[in-house]
Nucleic acid binder design. Structure first.
Lengths: 343, 343
DNA sequence: CTGAAAGCGCTTACAG
DNA sequence: CTGAAAGCGCTTACAG
């Protein structure tokens, strides 16, 4: 205990200095790999560090340097496949670079609530990665104060969505376009769409890709059905679509939605793919094992997370190269749930 | 810029003091809600804070106080349902308490690798929550240095697994016991088990509950089949079990495993539940929407995460009450995948 | 009720 | 090559 009431847990730079018989500045030089330290001095310091089990205090380092090796991921969700995989990718890359990773959840898209979360994330020091796939995320990205290092993970952008801020994306517009074309090529007259909540008031990238494919094929454009994020929403949407006998092909905004649609069609007595074809989005781990196994399009979310971190890392270390922005090309995976329409 | 090269981003306690015409100590008192500040002074300071957009620097606070409002979750995985839900629960509770939450992934159970991760987590300051459901997590919990605030999320413990450290658990031994009894009560001669990797070299809690139910019923005890964590492993295990015509009931260590088993039985032409009953573990979001929908046992993982944080919070604020340790009672959910054995 | 001092554990120029 | 000083932005006793 000293005057300010601290109990000293571990040893400090000064303890090491005392043990090595040098000043603490010299210890600082050694732990920072500064070249101008005599070899014998360095060795004595290193020995003392080892003996005392010294670890440099990250908090003090951050305060003295004015920045910390930390990144916090701001996201509306941590459990859905896409979000969770991006977080996983960020963590992998951050760990490799010896950065700590924090996570802040945006529970509401409400302006005040979002601002509070962004502030909290900013308070943590370090940089920010914002997953802007939904209204809360988009708003968060917009409200990051200028000067704070941030990269956005965004949907396929119509135009640059974040001003001059760096961002990464995987081409889900293209992906939606590809799956829709796949279904049309099987002979379906049109493809219905069960949508995930869009990131903005306007059309989402996935909806856009689907619509474009229909347009090019001269197919009718049925209104998208809103499905939410999970199987329950997909189930409700599926029951609705099952009532319409003209529906022969359904594209879903993600694989969980597709799972619910599959179930709804089963309950309605409509066979897949015999009477209705179903396709998902993301290629979640379970999709290959459903019965029928799910036709879907694979997106590299962990790669996206790694790319987001790499970009942020460049910004933080001020060695930022012109980074690639489109991370990967989506891959169509055709399985049992899609086939020719009934004759 | 000043002598040490810092560029001052936002305003400090001193700027506020200057603007309010008081000393910075008084500002400190105001932001800490200290009672002995004259009302008029307080108002002037508050006005200055508002005007300058002052936010107290969390790093400096942590350094001065010697501890930070932070928790880091150490886990082998962030995407599997149980792990992801625990993390979600921790984040919810931490956010409500204005704690920041970090996450560190234990990619290997290797002793050196685990130690590195524990050290990194400790460096972040604040407390630790370790998910000890697997060898990496168990080892991490063991190697947390004494004196560091930590709570473990553990399997049903045979005896106190972490010495004097606080821990929380949900009763998965009981859960396994219940599902097994459910299957036996339907008339099955015995129940086969597809296991998730155990947390230690010894029997896991789930395996133990299953075995106990068999023992009490005088049923034969077939050797557990190792399935790993995901549907692919379940699929392989399912194909193996499908070859044995005497198998009429299969319990799986989690719902993803069950999904793979369901698929394997389908491929082998064995109907569920007509010929074989299948039950899972966890009640993941998709399980109710599978065809057949999955009989399983619901575990409250987010509640577990919240409880872990509450316990840690108590430890950190030194107001630790004797906390409840068993968080919730598992709930059997009977759906379509279980039924009577074939005649 | 309010201010001046010392300290948290580190870094960055500045001297020698 | 190495040491003494000043500073990061805050808090905690200590004086008045």
């Amino acid at each position: 205990m000293n005057v300010t009431g601290h109990t000293r847990g571990s040893s400090s730079i000064r303890d090491v200095a005392a043990a090595a018989g040098v000043s603490y500045q010299t210890v600082s030089r050694v732990i920072n790999g500064h070249p101008s330290v005599r070899q014998s001095t360095r060795e004595r310091v290193l020995a003392a560090i080892d003996e005392l089990g010294f670890r440099r205090n990250a908090t003090a380092l951050a305060l003295a340097r004015g920045r910390s090796r930390a990144v916090t991921v701001l996201t509306a969700n941590t459990t859905h496949y896409g979000y969770a995989s991006i977080l996983q990718g960020v963590e992998e890359a951050a760990r490799a670079a010896a950065y700590s990773v924090g996570v802040g959840v945006l529970e509401s898209a409400d302006e005040a609530a979002v601002t509070v979360e962004v502030q909290r994330a900013a308070d943590a020091g370090g940089g920010l990665i914002v997953i802007a796939y939904d209204p809360a995320g988009v708003r968060a990205l917009e409200s990051v104060p200028a000067g704070l290092p941030v990269v956005g993970v965004v949907e396929t952008p119509a135009s640059d969505p974040t001003g001059d801020r760096p961002w990464v994306w995987t081409d889900d517009r293209e992906a939606a376009y590809e799956v829709t074309r796949h279904l049309l090529s099987l002979g379906h007259e049109t493809v219905h769409y069960v949508a995930i909540p869009s990131s903005t008031r306007r059309t989402s990238a996935r909806t856009g890709g689907w619509r474009q494919a229909l347009k090019e094929a001269g197919a009718p454009e049925p209104p998208p059905v809103q499905g939410g994020w999970g199987p329950a929403g997909g189930h409700a949407a599926g029951l609705e679509l099952a009532r319409d006998p003209s529906v022969t092909a359904v594209l879903c905004g993600n694989d969980d939605l597709a799972l619910g649609v599959l179930r709804a069609l089963h309950e309605a007595g409509r066979s897949v793919p015999g009477e209705v074809s179903v396709a998902g989005f993301d290629d979640a781990p379970h999709s290959a094992y459903l019965t029928p196994s799910l036709t879907t399009v694979r997106l590299d979310f962990t790669g996206l997370g790694r790319a987001a971190f790499a970009l942020l890392h460049g910004v933080l270390e001020e060695s930022a190269p012109v980074a690639p922005r489109r991370v990967s090309v989506p891959e169509l995976v055709v399985r049992e749930s899609s086939g020719r329409p009934p004759a």
